[in-house]
Design a protein around this nucleic acid. Structure first.
Lengths: 302, 302
DNA sequence: TTCTTCATATAGTTTTTCTATATCGCGGGG
DNA sequence: CCCCGCGATATAGAAAAACTATATGAAGAA
């Protein structure tokens, strides 16, 4: 791209516009400057190129023989840039990019997204499912949905709902559970990566994790959920993970009690960027969806 | 092209270079500025686009998902511009554009050009054969060769050789001519557009145009020449027009006497532009060619 | 730790670009 | 014929942008 160093890009654009439109005035209108500015740019650029591109006629100018080829190429190049910018800028208006943990995406967000699409058909959602928290100031994401304590620096953090944990299991196993103490008789499926502990839930009942049986362990809560559905044991789950499985009857929550973990769900947006309309629209939808979800939770657990 | 108004072209270029090269330092090298300048351009452009194109990583940055498409398009666009500039600038160095009258081109210049090509194989000659004098400051021509009095404003004018007129005719007719007075017995072919007059040539012999016979007239000296070669009459010709025909025996000049017309051959170049090497090379070749031509004239006439 | 390597923030300067005028050349209309 | 208007260009001053040279900060390497 070194050849572009010998000319000024704005001069090339002035040249192209003038050559295409055939008049300084029209070129100036397109570029949003005065005709004099265009004239200066053209003269300078022709000097930089070492050739005359526009032959001056009494009533204006028209391209020289050798200039035609250059102008055609300039046109092609600038058109390419123009559509690139148009697409990029258009995308920022119509595409909502959300960073979200894969499990939350698949178990809760994605099944509900079709309703958002119906509500805002002009917004295209792009999910970026990653385990690390993306910085909305330093990436192209418009917002992130994350579980955590809410202490993230340099971003705008908005609390959505607390994470509440409770045991779930397949219906067949649930029949054997009438009190929390019965949990000791059943295998437990555990997520080794989780930082939730059974103690939190058991303590109010005067129980502790040491009384629980061993069971399969997995490195991913999603796998745990599959195992629980398959009847391999009881799992300590939380709302967004288990709700849909409970509703469809694949799982049951044998006990009403839900305990708040130290974590919560948060909506993360840029602290510096002005909030786009698409973001506030999504937030609104998200909150209503969460409310509906919580309501559904109450009735699902009975 | 209106979309390009919302961003700065140089910013797009900085973005493209940084995205392609993966580092501010390398981008800065390509653009010929400091890394800080590139950083500023990128930040500003991303703000203008409303999206993050380059995701900052601990060791630099790399394109975001949505940025890749933009970068690819920017690359295509700038590459187009780059090759356009390269071709245009390269052409100015290697292509010599000459404006010349069609008749002079076909009867004198073109038959000799192959020797120039042999002498300077790297220069491509482009002849623009037009009847109007092109302005070397306002068109893409590097030089013009014109017949005239030498009074052209705002250009650099260099005298090459005087136009000298003399009668020519087919060999069969020449046999009937031993003195200028014999011309009265033969038909004369005339160019109605010419401003040369037989009187100029006849006066030294005490003769005048009134004594000449009528004959065919044409609107173009080239057609006259063809008529003379075909034996339709005697023509008042000049060196560059008739030399090659005389040498090849198609025509003869029955009299040694040549009379200078009021016109001459001139080399016209820009008065303001610095002279390119290719131009001086052409001038040098042209002068040697003219000298050889004049010498050939002497021997051809005998 | 400390060093190095990046990117970014900041301040001030330099350069460019722009606007607003005046000028010039040409052609059409009175 | 002269004058007017149109369109391009020159010029001067003002405005804006870009650049350099720093400092800062964050993260990996020694």
């Amino acid at each position: 791209m070194k050849n572009l160093n010998r000319v000024h890009l704005n001069g090339l654009r002035a040249l192209e516009a003038a050559g295409r439109l055939g008049s300084l005035q029209r070129a100036a209108d397109e570029l949003g400057v005065s005709p004099g500015a265009v004239s200066q740019q053209i003269i300078k650029t022709e000097r930089q190129l070492g050739t005359t591109v526009l032959e001056r006629t009494p009533r204006g100018f028209e391209p020289t023989q050798s200039g035609r080829l250059l102008l055609a190429r300039l046109f092609a190049g600038f058109r390419e840039l123009d559509t690139a910018v148009e697409a990029a800028a258009g995308q920022t208006e119509t595409t909502l990019t959300i960073s979200v943990a894969p499990l939350f995406a698949s178990k809760w967000l994605v099944p509900r997204l079709s309703r958002f699409r119906k509500l805002h058909p002009d917004i295209r959602v792009r999910l970026e499912a990653t385990t690390e928290l993306a910085d909305p100031d330093r990436s192209d994401i418009d917002l992130a949905l994350r579980i955590g304590t809410g202490n993230w620096p340099r971003v705008r953090v908005e609390f959505l709902l607390p994470q509440e944990v409770f045991p779930v299991c397949a219906p067949e196993l649930a029949a054997q559970l009438s009190t929390p103490a019965d949990l000791a008789r059943l295998p437990i499926v555990r997520d080794t990566n989780s930082n939730l502990s059974w103690d939190q839930w058991l303590r109010p009942f005067g129980l502790s994790e040491t009384m629980l049986a061993a069971g399969d362990t997995f490195t991913d809560a999603g796998l745990c959920l599959e195992a629980a559905i398959a009847g391999q044991g009881v799992m300590l789950a939380w709302q967004t993970l288990a709700l849909d499985a409970i509703r469809s009857g694949l799982l049951v929550a044998p006990f009403r009690e839900r305990i708040r973990s130290e974590f919560g769900y948060f909506l993360i947006t840029s602290a510096t960027r002005r909030e786009a309309k698409k973001v506030s629209q999504f937030r609104e939808w998200l909150k209503s969806e969460i409310a509906a979800s919580e309501e559904g939770m109450e009735t699902a657990i009975k």
